[in-house]
């Protein structure tokens, strides 16, 4: 299990990196944290001939707090996402989910942008990004554009990024003080890939659910919001019954994948359980008075 040979470039600027990607097209691969890419290279399932390492590109690792969003540089490591007080203050949901990624040594190296671009359906950050309607800023030879998270993920391990585009930052909307959040995932062992995860974000006004966001990961080829379940929640009085109903709606709405980690039927049942628990957590946080 040793990687095939490749040429190594470590550009210092984004422009350099993009021109390298532009030049080599599909033969090139971007190396961010490498915690998903390098295992594939070791197995020779990925065999880029040019590896463009963006760890030395300036300006890609930052946290910028705004009124509406927190903007996080793409090369920000998972460990920082999990522990930065600025990020935790803006989206405790994102921080919490980042703490579930792999193991500590993996989180020290893996990056937010890398995770989104890798588009593993069982990854935590894509699920949260979709749930929170994060926007992803990318730069390529054609210039800069902003993509809504739910438009980024095309299929399992596939995004709408062009080969020469680099994720540069992600804007996560701030979770408001009157919102409650919950995140649950089912893993067979700690640090292993989640079989199914659910992220929930609820706001209650005048005793009724004013807005609801429910995202699922691991169940299907891409993370997605379950609008059917969200609609079932909005306008209702939040309680065990409405939560159970929403969880059932979510379980019926998904078309789960099937593999050695879980059959489609099993995943559907996990969607039910994880959704209910994530919603209960969100309710609990609302009741405790902190989002």
């Amino acid at each position: 299990m040793k990687p095939a040979a490749f040429a190594y470039c470590a550009p210092r600027t984004l422009e350099e990196a993009i021109s390298l990607l532009d030049e080599h097209g599909y033969d090139a691969k971007l190396l961010a944290g490498g915690q998903s890419l390098v295992p594939l290279m070791n197995l020779r399932l990925a065999r880029p001939t040019v590896l463009v390492d963006i760890n030395r590109v300036d300006g890609l690792a930052f946290v910028e707090s705004g009124d509406e969003v927190v903007r996080i540089g793409a090369m920000t490591r998972h460990h920082t996402v999990a522990t930065s007080s600025e990020i935790r203050g803006a989206s405790p949901l994102l921080s919490h989910a980042a703490g579930h990624i792999g193991y500590r040594a993996i989180r020290h190296r893996g990056t937010l942008g890398g995770s989104l671009a890798h588009a593993d359906p069982a990854s935590e950050l894509p699920c949260v990004a979709v749930t929170q309607s994060a926007t992803v800023r990318v730069t390529g030879s054609a210039g800069e554009r902003t993509i809504r998270a739910d438009e980024l993920f095309l299929a399992e391990m596939t995004t709408t990024l062009a080969p020469d585009e680099i994720v540069t930052s992600v804007a996560i909307p701030r979770i408001r003080p009157d919102e409650g959040w919950g995140f649950r995932e089912f893993v067979r062992k700690v640090g292993d890939f989640a079989v199914v995860m659910a992220a929930a974000l609820l706001r209650v006004a005048d005793g009724r659910v004013a807005s609801a966001r429910l995202g699922l990961g691991g169940a299907e080829g891409t993370p997605r919001r379950v609008t059917e379940a969200e609609q079932a929640l909005v306008g209702s009085v939040l309680g065990a019954e409405t939560i159970e109903k929403a969880a059932r709606v979510a379980a019926e709405a998904v078309e789960p994948t099937s593999d050695i980690h879980g059959s489609a039927d099993y995943r559907r049942r996990l969607v039910h359980a994880m959704t209910r628990r994530a919603l209960q957590d969100a309710l609990g946080r609302l009741e405790a008075g902190h989002g």
Binding site: P39, L43, R188, K189, V190, G191, D192, F193, I260, H261
Partner: peptide, 28 residues
């Protein structure tokens, strides 16, 4: 609870890594 070497009907082993073949860690 965890460990299983799974073959498909063609005799292909589906569990060729520690991502597919799970060994209990300290938390398990």
């Amino acid at each position: 609870f965890f460990e299983e070497l799974i073959y498909d009907e063609q005799g292909q082993l589906l569990t060729t890594s520690f991502m597919d073949y799970l060994i209990p860690g300290p938390t398990e």
